[in-house]
Design a protein around this nucleic acid. Structure first.
Length: 818
RNA sequence: GCCCGGGUGGCGGAACCGGUAGACGCGGGGGACUUAAAAUCCUCUGCCAGCCAGGCGUGUGGGUUCGAGUCCCACCCCGGGCACCA
């Protein structure tokens, strides 16, 4: 018998599919319902890795299944091709980032083809193509017009190794997301997108995303970090009124000192006033030199600077000392706080370190809290004490009452704050989308006119980042110098480039009309979006997924798109590990998709990924077996070839209710459910079982039944193993592609169980199993149960208290004392 | 510390609404075919008990129930997120 040779057969069908342009999305006249199946596009930092193979396999199964269910599917692919990682890798190899990037794209494209994915290649693009980033710039200008893109000087995250600033989202535990270098703070003028303006909507709309896991939604909620409290005004000696933010206005009477962030303008003003200018500058220097990692260290003394001034507590007129300290952040709240050491752990530590008084104002339910003996702050709720007229009120009532009374005096107002910061998008690096702004000495910031887009990334020899943090683009002197479109005078181009995440915040719109002379055709976007199923890794839970939601809402407000959420359904596949750890060069545990394909074929790789476990769970490649899958596909191959001579012509209707047909139809019912819920591992298990049944009957079954069985099995496997099923489908006598065939329909009558197992328990323990009809009555089931010799033996000499009967599956006989 | 997940055989994992725990596969044992190997096929495989009968078993301890992997309470462990955010 002819052997199953995946290599030859897979290449053959891949060529055939391409020739036929099989996976092109249908045009506006296509009568089928649409389905937009989107996979997070790859980053071309090398060839495809196993993580990609898993993600794209899942996405491909989703897309192919929808085709077979009669949908018009949009399943696009492209490359997220600008950015730091590609640039760093290129520099390491002494290559131009463009060269390196496009070479990797070609390599990945080849591997994606070899894996047999059903992409609509006609829509492919790269975010580093001028035809794409032209529209990234166009969108930036729309943001700029609305004040959603702006420049400001702020203390920002700086990676000394990448020599660029980073967004908050790119700092992981105080370290650079890409190179793990401890991040420092720098005071720089940078471009931001005003994502904070959307904080409330980004938070509230999470509730609409029923197709997202709770995990990702929680991560976004944490990241946005909404808190409710009050702004309260303190009069600070020598400065005037200063607003602070607190979530605990009920503890106002416990404020025993006041703290400014070191960068707060009032802090340096007070230091100057106290004649401590030089000392303060040294203090500030010290604070700035500190890396984020050091600042977050657990057992660390908070830096303190006594500003020798008093602040007046508005609730009781008390004068309290004023400090500057690095534990107060300029970027959150107002950059100034009231300190309540008894009820805030940070304030408590600061008070202890600096010998400041501690006053209890909230008594916990048990009582007995004493400032002189407490070893940590009490942050819970309780009853107000030492709080003048508010004594005796529970915390939540005290909160409301204190704010209300202060508000009447114009000294407080309820306030909501978010942890989320504006998105820092400018980068001092070469390989990114240029910011389409000019700086004119007379007109200030001037937008590059739409007609002059794209602002093309200049060709320069020296594209390495500069140590001073100036963008390499600044070296392209001729490119930088331009005439101001508004006054005609000499202006200079902005020399920063955009964060890669800007590019990826709108690519899914572009796929709808990738060659459009606009960012996208609104009609095509309305036709395809929102995305029906988005598939990708959880590592983007707060970066890409938050930014894309923000972009979509901003575009909605501009009237450019008719919806506010781009991805109502999100599937986060797990990671691919090896031996319990991420694959990495340093560990030497990398398995490449290419080697697996060469050894086993693409179909085996795909099915192995799917069979390994639930899609959301990590796959440990060391613990799964392509061998087993390969064996099974071989068995399928041999069974089909063995059956072939016996089979009637295609289309011969099977009849009757043989056990084979019942097994087939039951499997169709269950596997269809599995496909709908992405339970591919159990779907594969059921297909394996079905092949076992078919194999047993391959020489004895009714020929028409056998044909039906094999065809349905092949159809159900087609989305997962597209090549072998295509081959077998043709060998079974079909002309067209198996992937253009319809998903099999089951006959409910045949899918119904003919016999079920009646379990007989005595006192909850299984004592007997009897095969019965599913229609059995309670009385009949009980009679059969009691008639069983093994059960009767158990029941000798004991009294039956009751019989629980749940036909057709269960009878439980409860005995006295049992 | 707070918030999400999750703990089931030697391993990956099944188990609808509370109703046969361990589907399917890997690995392992035994056997067939073969001069031999590969490939393939058959068979056994949670633990204890020689077989049967039986007992024990889903992180730990309690509870609800005729019946709990599944529900409730307390705890332990693992993974992930957030965290000097006032």
């Amino acid at each position: 018998m002819e052997r199953y040779d995946p290599q030859e057969l897979e290449l053959k069908w891949q060529a055939w599919w391409e020739e036929r342009g099989m996976y092109r999305a249908g045009g506006p006249d296509d009568p089928r319902p649409k389905f937009y199946a989107l996979d997070m596009f790859p980053y071309p930092s090398g060839d495809l890795h196993m993580g990609h193979a898993e993600a794209f396999t899942i996405g491909d199964v989703i897309a192919r299944y929808r085709w077979m269910r009669g949908y018009n599917v949009l399943h696009p692919i492209g490359w997220d091709a600008f950015g730091l990682p590609a640039e760093n890798a290129a520099i390491q190899r002494g290559l131009h980032p463009r060269e390196w990037t496009y070479a990797n794209i070609a390599k990945q494209r080849e591997t994606l083809r070899r894996l047999g994915y059903s992409f609509d290649w006609s829509r492919a693009f790269n975010t580093c193509d001028p035809e794409y980033y032209r529209w990234t710039q166009w969108l930036f200008l729309r943001f700029h017009e609305r004040g959603l893109a702006y420049r400001k000087a702020a203390p920002v995250n700086w990676c000394p190794s990448c020599k660029t600033v980073l967004a908050n989202e790119q700092v992981i535990q105080g370290r650079c997301e890409r190179c793990d270098t401890p991040v420092t703070k720098r005071e720089l003028t940078q471009w931001f997108l005003k994502i904070t303006e959307y904080a409330e909507r980004l938070l509230a709309d999470l509730d609409l995303l029923e197709g997202w896991s709770e995990k990702v939604k929680t991560m976004q909620r944490n990241w946005i970090g909404r808190s409710e409290g009050a702004d309260v005004v303190f009069e600070v000696e020598g400065v005037g009124p200063v607003t602070i933010y607190t979530t605990r206005p009920d503890t106002l009477f416990g404020a025993t000192f006041f703290v400014f962030a070191p960068e707060h303008p009032a802090a340096s003003a007070l230091a100057t006033r106290a004649g401590l200018e030089r000392e303060f500058r040294a203090f500030l220097e010290e604070v700035r030199a500190e890396t984020e990692v050091e600042r977050l260290a657990v057992a660390r003394k908070k830096k303190a600077f006594d500003l020798r001034a008093r602040a007046i507590n508005p609730v009781n007129g008390e004068a309290i000392p004023v400090f500057a300290s690095d534990y107060v952040l300029m970027e959150y709240g107002t950059g100034a706080i009231m300190a309540v050491p008894a009820h805030d752990q940070r304030d408590f530590e600061f008070a202890r370190e600096n010998g400041l008084p501690i006053r209890v104002v909230v008594m916990p339910p048990g009582g007995g809290l004493d400032a002189s003996t407490m070893t940590q702050a009490y942050e819970g709720e309780g009853t107000l004490v030492n709080s003048g007229p508010y004594d005796g009120l529970p915390s939540h009532e005290g909160k409301a009452a204190i704010v209300r009374d202060l508000q009447a005096r114009g000294l407080a107002s309820p306030a909501v704050r978010y942890r989320l910061r504006d998105w820092l998008i400018s980068r001092q690096r070469y390989w990114g989308c240029p910011i389409p702004i000019m700086h004119c000495p007379r007109c200030g910031e001037v937008r590059v006119p739409d007609t002059e887009l794209p602002v093309v990334l200049p060709e320069i020899k020296e594209y390495l980042p500069t140590p001073e943090g100036e963008s390499p683009l600044a070296r392209a002197e001729e490119w930088v110098r331009v005439a101001c479109p508004s006054c005609g005078g000499e202006a200079r181009r902005d020399t920063d480039t955009m964060d890669t995440f800007v590019d990826s915040s709108w690519y899914f719109f572009r796929y709808c009309s990738p060659r459009e002379e606009r960012p996208f055709d609104p009609a095509e976007v309305a036709r395809w979006m929102p995305v029906d199923q988005y598939t990708g890794g959880i590592e983007h839970a707060i970066l890409h997924l938050l930014y894309s939601r923000f972009f979509t809402k901003a575009l909605y407000d501009m009237g450019l798109v008719p919806f506010t959420e781009p991805f109502p359904n999100l599937l986060n596949q797990g990671m691919v590990l090896y031996g319990g750890a991420a694959m990495s060069k340093s560990r030497g545990n990398i398995v490449e998709p290419r080697e697996v394909i060469e050894k086993y074929g693409a179909d085996t790789l795909r099915v192995t990924m799917l069979f390994a476990g639930p899609v959301e769970a990590d796959v440990d490649w060391a613990a799964v077996s392509p061998e087993g899958v390969k064996r099974w596909l071989g068995r399928l191959w041999r069974t089909c070839l063995q059956a072939l001579p016996r089979l009637p012509a295609p289309g011969t209707p099977p009849r009757g209710g043989s056990s084979l047909r019942r097994a087939v139809h039951r499997t169709v019912k269950e596997v269809t459910e599995d496909y709908e819920t992405f339970s591919y591992n159990t779907a594969v298990a059921k297909l394996m079982s079905l092949l076992g049944v078919i194999q047993k009957e391959v020489t004895s079954a009714e020929p028409a039944d056998l044909r039906e069985a094999l065809e349905f099995l092949i159809l159900m496997l087609a989305p997962m193993a597209p090549h072998i099923t295509e081959e077998l489908w043709h060998r079974l006598g079909h002309e067209g592609s198996v992937h253009e065939a319809s998903w099999p329909a089951f006959d409910p009558e045949l899918a119904r169980e003919e016999e079920v197992t009646l379990v007989v328990q005595v006192d909850g323990k299984v004592r007997e199993r009897i095969r019965v009809a599913p229609t059995i009555t309670a009385e009949e089931a009980e009679r059969l149960a009691l008639a069983s010799p093994r059960v009767a033996q158990r029941l000798q000499g004991v009294r039956i208290v009751r019989v629980v009967c749940r036909p057709p599956g269960l009878v439980n006989i409860v005995t006295e004392g049992g």
